[in-house]
Amino acid sequence: MFFVQTDDDLNLIESFKQGDTSAFGEIVLRYQDKIYNLCRHMLGNTADAEDAAQDVFLKAYQALPKFQPEASLYTWLYRIATNTCIDYKKKPIFESLFGDSGEGERLVHDRATDAPSPEKLYQSKQIDKALQESLGKLSPKLRAIIILKEIEELSYEEIADALEISMGTVKSRIARAREELQRLMKKFREQNP
């Protein structure tokens, strides 16, 4: 498990509850990249991702006074983000999951270091494209769970906490999302040989 409720989180929450609104600014700075990344992958474009991520923090700001310290701030924010993205206005999504990035957006992942051959690069791009298209066709709930697992790298336990579902449901839903993705990717490859 790579995240836990830190003392810093607890201190920030306590300060905020006592009226120090700057503590909330610290929370935003701490989690903005993770929440934005989730929204970006859920919604597929930078504009909607920023709108949704801002909404997430606004909802968190309003709900934080009632936040129970027993819960993890991190998974609580993921819960708000997932629900916000699922409820987000329906738009044609996934212009780009792996390709072009928006203005001001910095990419963390650096794939140039592997220096793959042109053939391998082409194959990799085809897989990326198939995955991108297929992910966009998944239902929002399945998309959310597979992104939490594969992109955000959350454990089953953390996903169960974030989505407020049982471990068994997490396990079966991830398996279903993978099967569905596999089917969609196969279909995509057949249509785009």
Binding site: Q32, N37, R40, L131
Partner: peptide
């Protein structure tokens, strides 16, 4: 598929977010 996910870009919040 898992390898493709591992290669997916991780995005940081835009400047001034």
């Amino acid at each position: 598929m898992q390898a493709a996910f591992a290669n997916a870009e991780r995005h940081q919040a835009p400047y001034g977010f």
